[in-house]
Simulated assay, not measured.
Amino acid sequence: MKVLCLSGSARAASFNSALLAVAAADLASRDIDVVRVAPAELTALPLMDQDLEAASGLPEQARALKAAFHKADGVVLACPEYNGSVTPLLKNVIDWVSRPDEALPAPACFQRRPMALLAASPGALGGLRGLRHMREILGNLSAMVVPRQFALAKAGDAFDAQGALRDSKNQEAVAGVIDDLLYWMEAIHGKG
């Protein structure tokens, strides 16, 4: 099985990217093929613009991301919260990946695709408000957003120097989200 992992933050010291690394390590420990998208690949995407799309088609970066989503049996998104909602970077990715093209119809990258949501924030809610919006956006695209999610509060103190989570309960929460993702991947795709 293959899981695509990406963070909605381009910040070098991103808590969400650190949390995504924890999830990716958990997946790898279960012999899952993990495909990580580098933040530079996301920032290279132009702002979603239908005039640009009409003039020159989907940008090559968008085609590559669409292919990565389509090939994945599941997706893990680390979703920073900006002003109580999703980041422009992550929304731009979703907007481009959801566009139709000759190779992949519009819903092919999301429809029935199991997706797991994580968030991390220095605040007390851990990015929880943004996850609600992300769940709604992905649901509108017919993605199967797994029921369990995890929002890491007080993320500035949550990681040790090696990037591991200090609190075993937080590690268990990430593992629980991965458990849900793998369950739904098996249920939908029949791979195990």
Rank of each mutant, 00 (worst) to 15 (best):
residue 138 L to W: 01
residue 15 F to Q: 09
residue 142 S to R: 14
residue 27 L to K: 03
residue 48 M to D: 01
residue 104 L to A: 07
residue 19 L to T: 02
residue 146 V to W: 01
residue 110 F to S: 01
residue 87 T to V: 03
residue 44 A to E: 15
residue 65 L to H: 10
residue 107 P to E: 05
residue 77 L to K: 02
residue 41 E to A: 15
residue 41 E to R: 14
residue 65 L to K: 05
residue 131 L to W: 04
residue 121 S to H: 10
residue 20 L to Y: 00
residue 13 A to F: 11
residue 76 V to G: 00
residue 53 E to H: 14
residue 96 W to R: 06
residue 100 P to S: 03
residue 57 G to P: 10
residue 136 E to L: 15
residue 142 S to A: 15
residue 110 F to K: 03
residue 115 M to C: 03
residue 93 V to Y: 13
residue 51 D to I: 11
residue 135 R to V: 06
residue 111 Q to I: 13
residue 137 I to A: 03
residue 82 Y to T: 01
residue 58 L to A: 11
residue 44 A to Q: 14
residue 105 P to Y: 11
residue 22 V to W: 01
residue 81 E to R: 07
residue 118 L to N: 03
residue 110 F to M: 09
residue 76 V to F: 02
residue 121 S to K: 07
residue 83 N to Y: 08
residue 147 P to G: 14
residue 44 A to S: 15
residue 30 R to F: 01
residue 80 P to S: 06
residue 13 A to P: 00
residue 102 E to W: 08
residue 108 A to Y: 05
residue 38 A to L: 08
residue 148 R to P: 00
residue 66 K to G: 08
residue 119 A to W: 07
residue 137 I to H: 04
residue 22 V to A: 00
residue 21 A to G: 04
residue 88 P to S: 13
residue 56 S to M: 10
residue 122 P to F: 04
residue 50 Q to F: 15
residue 14 S to R: 00
residue 24 A to D: 05
residue 130 G to L: 06
residue 22 V to H: 00
residue 116 A to W: 01
residue 74 G to F: 03
residue 86 V to F: 05
residue 75 V to A: 02
residue 97 V to Y: 09
residue 40 A to H: 15
residue 107 P to L: 10
residue 48 M to L: 14
residue 13 A to W: 05
residue 51 D to S: 11
residue 92 N to I: 08
residue 67 A to V: 06
residue 45 L to G: 12
residue 125 L to Q: 07
residue 57 G to N: 10
residue 67 A to E: 10
residue 109 C to R: 12
residue 22 V to M: 00
residue 33 D to V: 06
residue 30 R to T: 00
residue 129 R to M: 10
residue 18 A to S: 11
residue 123 G to H: 11
residue 50 Q to A: 14
residue 30 R to P: 07
residue 72 A to H: 05
residue 149 Q to Y: 08
residue 114 P to H: 02
residue 127 G to L: 02
residue 44 A to W: 11
residue 86 V to S: 02
residue 92 N to E: 11
residue 131 L to D: 04
residue 94 I to V: 12
residue 17 S to Q: 09
residue 96 W to Y: 09
residue 60 E to L: 15
residue 98 S to F: 12
residue 59 P to K: 12
residue 77 L to V: 05
residue 72 A to G: 09
residue 68 A to S: 12
residue 117 L to F: 05
